[in-house]
Write a protein that binds this DNA or RNA. Structure first.
Lengths: 210, 210
DNA sequence: TTTTGTGAACTAGTTCACAGCT
DNA sequence: AGCTGTGAACTAGTTCACAAAA
């Protein structure tokens, strides 16, 4: 199943949360699509991949579908997240509200700077020495590693993380990391994103439309 | 031209920078692909869209291709970036090394919190009041808005930014923003990324392979 | 001989149209 | 009547194979 589908499921879940807060009990793919600017047949197709969650003539029961999605996304069991790099970005991610939702637990920040180890983020996530990760992971393994270390250290750190049992990596460093095929890698490259936008601006101005 | 292509061009540029530092003068699509785990025909196709930059039998001249790519990506003229939201994330982005490369200028952080206005990030990016953005933009307009404000404020802020002439938006808030068709929007949703990874972990464990 | 540039084949992803439940 | 689930049509994106150039 594709990366794109996974992303959309997460979006649907967020929409359902909003609807539930509004006290809405049931929703059709059409009204979901309209309210959140999505595509109705695609919603149906995405959901139908995992089961028949809807009721013809009615739509989907919000609470029901939410439960299904949380299960499909693996959020009904705790996912343990370790953040590597306690710099500006790592600290910001540790305290990012979306990263401490129900279903995800941040076990700590890991860094090599002596001055940082023992401190904690504003939100209360503790900073450990990188070398202690292996030990901690042995007791209870981390599922996801977030890489927020400088580019030069990224590959080294990701290797260590994987050695200690991490099976998915969210990479914020501007490097193409090598991971074994069994490990899922997702890179969020801020530089690339910025330059893509710059590219579209350049196109607009330059491509002979004025 | 597609988003994916734009992203790859940015990656190619980064590779070329690395090669130049190593003192390499000329490179073929094949060796580029091998060194950086890319796909050779795709590199050629991507580049060929914008001109004939290569020399048959030789490859591409590193310095030459770099210059072309910088031009295509619009990095040969200054791109002005405004960051909205001086929270953890905004501050981290302001000081992110990849965001202050040659070709991009961060004009400031914009927030509404009185306590923050007048301060500056560790890296020296100044924090202004949101209401001063319009005025500043009138003098010299910002090209890209980075949205790092809380979800509830995101749409409001992006509207203001666009009204003041911003033509591209990098959105870090967990909201689907509405922008006019002429404005380029790129959303980096941290929650969605995390949940996608969780999804793949759940699949691995559950889909009947043990 | 080497390596580009590119049409043609292929693959993945999206949209559509409608049969089939409720 | 209303809305889901889905095969079939379409679109976008990638890979391949090779002719053309240096």
């Amino acid at each position: 199943m594709s990366d794109l589908t996974a992303g959309r499921l997460s979006v649907y879940l967020r929409c359902l949360n909003a609807l539930e807060t509004e006290g809405i009990k049931t929703v059709s793919s059409g009204s979901l699509a309209e309210q959140f600017h999505l595509n109705a047949p695609q919603i149906r197709k995405d959901l139908a991949t995992f089961g028949e969650f809807g009721v013809r003539g009615v739509g989907y029961y919000v609470v029901d579908l939410k439960r299904h999605l949380r299960h499909i996304l693996g959020l009904d069991r705790m996912v343990r997240v370790a953040i590597f790099g306690a710099g500006n970005l790592g600290m910001a991610l540790a305290d990012y509200p979306g990263f401490r939702r129900q279903g995800q637990e941040i076990i700590g920040l890991f860094d090599v700077a002596k001055a940082k180890v023992g401190q904690q983020s504003r939100g209360g996530v503790r900073i450990f020495h990188l070398r202690d990760f292996k030990k901690m992971a042995r007791k209870s393994p981390a599922d996801i590693a977030v890489i927020a270390v400088p580019a030069d250290a990224a590959q080294l750190v990701v290797n260590e993380a994987i050695e200690s049992g991490v099976r998915a990596v969210l990479n914020f460093s501007p490097r193409a990391l090598k991971v074994p095929p069994a490990v899922k890698l997702k890179t969020m490259d801020l530089t690339v994103s910025m330059e893509s936008l710059s590219f579209f601006l350049a196109r607009e101005d330059g491509d002979g439309r004025a």
